[in-house]
Design a binder for these strands. Structure first.
Lengths: 76, 76
DNA sequence: ACTTTTTTTATCATTTATGATAACCATAAC
DNA sequence: GTTATGGTTATCATAAATGATAAAAAAAGT
């Protein structure tokens, strides 16, 4: 597994964690972000290398900053 | 201009600013990141919606965090 | 068990980020 | 002028992100 894969998995886990902290369903957040629920699932599973705009929409709909979302250091 | 375009322009300006702060040439940073200089130019001009991995490589080679790079609020 | 909700997985189409190459523009030296 | 150096712009190909749909699996509730 290369560093790109590791990054994808890290961001996926982080999005999932932040989403669950707010107790919102994956499909509901996906809908608010105008992202297909299947694609959102892939993203959380680390199966994609999201673009900045995708991350921005997620951050906005979670009420957090982009910085919060990509704060991956020292995170499980 | 929609919010996606604004975001792209904002990240481009931010990358350019951070790069110039370190006095490194665009083409040199591009080379270190394994990004084509023409593509890097496009990115700084706001002509692309970069992926997380692209931003990560730029951050790494600038010696800063992803959070630093996407810290776009209240920035020109 | 059954039903409902939520998530995952697979597949195909479309859009777009990036790679790659080339040519061009600007500036500053000399 | 010419020569570098740094940046831009255009174009085409390729890889991959995302859209879109469907089906299956898993989890939760009753």
């Amino acid at each position: 597994m290369d560093d790109k894969d590791q990054l994808q998995i890290a961001i996926g886990k982080r999005v999932k964690m932040l989403r669950e902290e707010q107790g919102i369903a994956q499909q509901d957040l996906a809908a608010k972000c105008n992202i297909e629920k299947s694609n959102f699932s892939r993203l959380e599973a680390g199966g994609t290398n999201p673009t900045l705009y995708t991350l921005k929409r997620i951050a906005d709909n979670l009420g957090i900053t982009l910085c919060d979302i990509v704060n991956l250091e020292d995170k499980k």
